[in-house]
Every structure is written in C-alpha cells, then in structure tokens.
Amino acid sequence: MLSHDTKYTRLKVRGRTLLGSASYWLAADHLLIVELSSVVERYRRIALKDITVMTIRGTRLFQLYLILGIVLLLLLATLFVVIPSTQDPFNYGVVILGSLMGFIVVALLIHLVRGPTAYCELQTRVQTVRLPGITRRRSSEQILALLAPVIRNPDGTSAHPSRAG
C-alpha cells in the first residue's frame, strides 16, 4: 500500500467523483493520481519537471445547482401548501414532501458551505490533465498551494507537504 511506502506522501486533498474518489500521492519526482471509478482503480503518474502550468478554472455550476435547488424547493413548498389537509394527523403526503424539502435544504446548505465550483488542470507540453474529484475552488487552491512549491523545486529543497493522517 502507498500509505506504507516511504517514497510517497499523501496530499491532504481528497477528491470525490460521482462513482468513486481520487487521491493524490507525491513522490520525489512525480505526482501519482489514484482514481477509483466504480470498481476500477486507475493510476496516472505525472513527472513534476514536466508540469508547465497549473490552472484553476471557475465554473458556473455553483450558481446552477443553487438555482435548481431553490426552484425545486419552491415547487415542493407550493405542493405543500396546495395539498389539502386531512383530519389524519399523520398525512403521508406531508411527511414525504417535508422529508424531500428537508433533504434539499440540507443539500443546499452543504453546497453553500463547500463554496464556489472550479476545476484544476495540470498542463505539460503534451497533455492537459484535469484533476479528478477536485470540483471546488477551495480544494483546487489547496492542491495548488501544496504542489506549486514542490514543482518549482522538484529536488526536494522546498517544504514538503504534510503527511495525511
């Protein structure tokens, strides 16, 4: 396992994808990206000396998800009001709608806390690699801050990123 391998240091950035996750491992001369996609684990190694540019590109998904969530919430709230109240205090329709609204509110809150969406790209002379699972500006800036000093000094003279627990 990489966590037992002294050559690798795990970067404290964890990527989440729709069907899996991604982790980033730093060696003296390369970055290893381990991406789990459903049941297949893929490995990609990028030599640090080959990286020319790192970019963080902001996306509009933050606003899009926010608007979608609010629209859905308003729709459910309208249904909530329209559903005729019955004598039965345990109205299934109200319970289901309430649960859905609660779920959306929680999802929206998490979305707001996680902040604006963005993706991070590593560029070499021959390829551009979009870092998997990095979907927020905060995590993109985090990984950029961890990698930039190491890419500038791949011989290890820079401060090494702290090891993940």
């Binding site: 000396k49 080959d50 990286i51 020319t52 540019v53 790192m54 970019t55 963080i56 590109r57 902001g58 963005a118 070499t124 002379r125 993109s140 800036e141 950029l144 930039a148 890419i151 500038r152």
Partner: peptide
Amino acid sequence: PVTIQVFPA
C-alpha cells in the same frame, strides 16, 4: 475566473 501558476518547465 481563472488562476494561473506558471512553472519553470
């Protein structure tokens, strides 16, 4: 919005 870091390579 874009943030760019350029490296020696």
